[in-house]
Design a protein around this nucleic acid. Structure first.
Lengths: 292, 292
DNA sequence: TATACATATCACCAATACTGATGGTTATTA
DNA sequence: TAATAACCATCAGTATTGGTGATATGTATA
């Protein structure tokens, strides 16, 4: 049966077009390559190289198999980098809890980069209402969390402000509020408002309450759907509704009392007194600058 | 450096939860496995198994690396099946020339099945107007071809009837013809017709000519676009326009003289006096039943 | 406590992979 | 054309590796 070293000889020799060059590259003598490939050919019962010319070149059979042999070696490279990663103690998984409103466009590239830097570490994204993030961290069911700042009890977790997420007030184009040129607070009060709330009620739920009648939902996607169906108006993260506003599915309310977009502070949190591994430390650092 | 045999020991032992069982499966003695894995652990500078219990189980590090090791072995399996295929002389590539009108829904599954049966053989689909297929085969630039039957000169190729492709006459919903309840030939004559034609003019180009004014295009996709823009009416393969008819983008003309869909015969062709390999033979057989 | 079944270790043996020398072949250069 | 340099195949000898079988030890099960 063939072995990895023979596959290496096969691929290198094919790429370099020379057994001697391959030998130099792999740190062996020429005859070792010559024999190694001859043995591989015996094992596979196929001729891989055409030696009739000066430079050995792949036979048609060799060409067909080259990509497969290369694929095996690529997999061993993957294994090697994973071994490196595990060797320096990279975590097996990092669980990141966040509200889908906080899945900002800049997060994607960070996760991409993370995957390259920590091939042996998996990422689990846990989508939950912002208000429940802190609880997941407390219960050690998540390692890092992103949440809208909350003034309530914050024992057992370490949290740091990382920036603001701007919000627009939005409604359906057919909604009565859409017809007002400049909306003030009094205008808003009689119309039903949709507000985010998770399992746990916190003071955050209260922050944005303006209207008299409030309906709740536990995700911004749900709120968006409700607003689109004219059920009420809501504050929504700008990056979630930009597209819909452009497509005229939603109207951004021109608030007379809000000259720049209203925004919420965001905290990055993790369990207190818990050591972070390499991967978590890296990700923590990157997330610190998520909203810049 | 580790080798494939050690990876096999790693994966098998982990799956079986036993070095002895692994030894039996791999046809070695227990001590070989014990040493093999110990050496692997030395090479990787990591402990893969926890031997403190009765059944050896993977350490966290072992768990992280397991999938990678398995992936390497899976790649060797791929290599092995490719070696088998190349060993029995499977072709490196098969070039199938056809008109996009003949990319019928049943072709997809056949190609899928082909990929499984002949892993070392690549498929090249050459999309050209039906009338040019025969030429590609003659010039040996394709191995198999599908084309609408053509009564012209057919030297050097072997061709066989395999079935019919039904056509609908279609036009844009805003087209004058769309307003007629039952369209007869005389109604069609004054309206511009769009007909397929390739590089080579053949008698096929003439077959479907009905209207006085004819415009040409070299693909049904182009014709479809032209019909959608109201440039004329055309005969189109049913399977290409079903969707558009359903979406009211096209109207199927109710032809008084065509009570069942007009259809064209299709031939499967290949070069005469040329030996077919396994893969080509298999595909040839399957394509014979393509339109059943 | 006895049994059955694991794993680790060790000395020994067999298979293999590598080395270095040799000879033949093919381009390149004088 | 002759000399040179670079390449590959082959082979005998050696070093390395991997496998064997025996033994000691450990751990569940009855």
């Amino acid at each position: 049966m063939y072995n990895l070293e023979q596959l290496r000889m096969f691929v290198e020799s094919a790429e370099l077009g020379s057994f001697s060059a391959c030998a130099r590259k792999l740190g062996k003598v020429q005859s070792a390559i010559s024999q190694g490939i001859a043995n591989l050919e015996i094992d596979l019962n196929l001729q891989l190289f055409d030696r009739s010319t000066r430079k050995p070149s792949l036979t048609p059979e060799g060409k067909q198999l080259f990509a497969y042999a290369e694929a095996v070696l690529r997999q061993t490279e993957e294994l090697n980098t994973a071994v490196q990663a595990v060797g320096r103690g990279d975590e097996a998984i990092i669980r990141l809890a966040l509200d889908n409103a906080l899945f900002v466009p800049t997060l994607g590239p960070i996760l991409q980069e993370f995957g390259d830097a920590f091939p042996a570490t998996a990422i689990e994204i846990i989508y939950i209402p912002s208000t429940d993030v802190i609880n997941l961290i407390k219960k050690q069911r998540a390692d890092l969390g992103l949440m809208f700042s909350d003034l309530s009890f914050k024992q057992d977790v370490q949290l740091g402000f990382i920036g603001h997420v701007p919000f627009h007030a939005v409604c359906n184009p057919a909604h009565p509020l859409a017809k007002i040129d400049s909306v003030n607070v009094v205008d808003l009060i009689p119309h039903r408002q949709l507000v985010l709330r998770g399992e746990i009620a916190t003071d955050f739920d209260q922050v944005a309450k303006i209207s008299a009648e409030i309906w709740w939902a536990n995700s911004f996607h749900a709120i968006e759907e409700m607003v689109k169906q004219g059920i009420g108006w809501a504050y929504m993260p700008c990056h979630l509704v930009e597209e819909a506003i452009k497509n005229k599915e939603l109207i951004q309310l021109p608030l007379s009392f809000d000259h720049k977009p209203w925004s919420l502070s965001v905290d990055l949190i993790r369990a207190k007194n818990q050591r972070m591994g390499h991967a978590q430390g890296w990700l923590y650092g990157k997330l610190t600058h998520l909203l810049e």
